[in-house]
């Protein structure tokens, strides 16, 4: 009896987000998909033409393919984090949506799950669009669109949790800059999106593996380009996923419930 009730509540919240997305589809198409496409064009075509092909992961491949695959992971990071952090903060603090829904038969716990699952769904969709472009350009095989789905969703959920945790801990919207500059940008630049982390000095490589984007990017390359599967990616992703989901919910409960 309880379980279906909770699922119904989460579904209601998810549908609320979906209907906002659907109503403003034009706005969301621009804000969700333009950014990764610009990265693909700039790095894939621009930098890619400079580098041509090179060796990575024991394979010889074009830089364009390499970076397109990295942008799949980066899209999960940016879309998940920003929707959770800024979107979450605005909905929690300015719009007070969490509060408005949590005095109906839907509980705050369900509202937060709905928020996380929606943020993750949207980021996963954006990551899949990047993969689709990679398929269309002949860089990835068609079947990777399906095999990517679990990674796209869990990776996006992980970074949405990071964003929502940041929203829960931030006292004001400016404070969201801390995780943005201290966590998101360093990951974006040092976790293997734009170059193989093997090019980094050994200590930095170890550090890069601590952060989840390295594992997400590594798995994305395994699924899209056939890079060797690295077993450590699974425990690293699961560890961060559980930690960030826990932290995001704890921060939000601590923030909202006195």
């Amino acid at each position: 009896m309880r379980m279906p009730d909770a699922l119904w509540g989460i579904r209601c919240v998810w549908l609320r987000y979906f209907s906002v997305f659907y109503k403003s589809i034009g706005y969301y198409l621009v804000t969700t998909f333009i950014e990764p496409i610009l990265y693909m064009l700039s790095f894939g075509l621009g930098v890619g033409s400079l580098i041509g092909s090179f060796s990575a992961g024991g394979m010889h491949l074009s830089y364009r393919s390499f970076v397109f695959s990295g942008i799949i992971a980066q899209t999960m990071l940016f879309q998940g984090f920003y929707e959770g952090a800024y979107g979450g903060f605005i909905r929690m603090y300015y719009q007070k949506i969490f509060h408005a829904i949590s005095v109906t038969p839907i509980t705050l716990s369900e509202v937060l799950w709905g928020e996380l699952l929606w943020d993750a769904s949207k980021a996963a969709l954006a990551a899949e669009v990047v993969a689709l472009i990679g398929v269309a350009s002949g860089d990835f095989p068609l079947h990777c669109l399906f095999t990517l789905i679990p990674l796209a969703f869990l990776g996006s959920l992980l970074f949405s949790g990071m964003g929502l945790a940041a929203a829960g801990f931030a006292r004001n919207i400016e404070q969201l800059s801390y995780p943005q500059y201290l966590l998101v940008f360093p990951m974006f630049l040092f976790c293997g999106v734009f170059y193989p982390i093997e090019r980094l000095p050994a200590p930095l490589q170890v550090l890069a593996w601590v952060f989840p984007l390295t594992s997400v990017a590594s798995l994305a390359r395994t699924l899209t380009l056939g890079f060797p599967f690295q077993i450590r990616t699974i425990p690293i992703i699961l560890f961060w996923l559980v930690l960030l989901l826990f932290l995001s919910r704890r921060a939000m409960f601590g923030r909202l419930v006195k």
Partner: peptide, 13 residues
């Protein structure tokens, strides 16, 4: 239960 809280909690979306 129906609640109208003191602060505005309308869903502006």
């Amino acid at each position: 239960l129906g609640v109208c809280s003191q602060e505005e909690t309308l869903d502006s979306d």
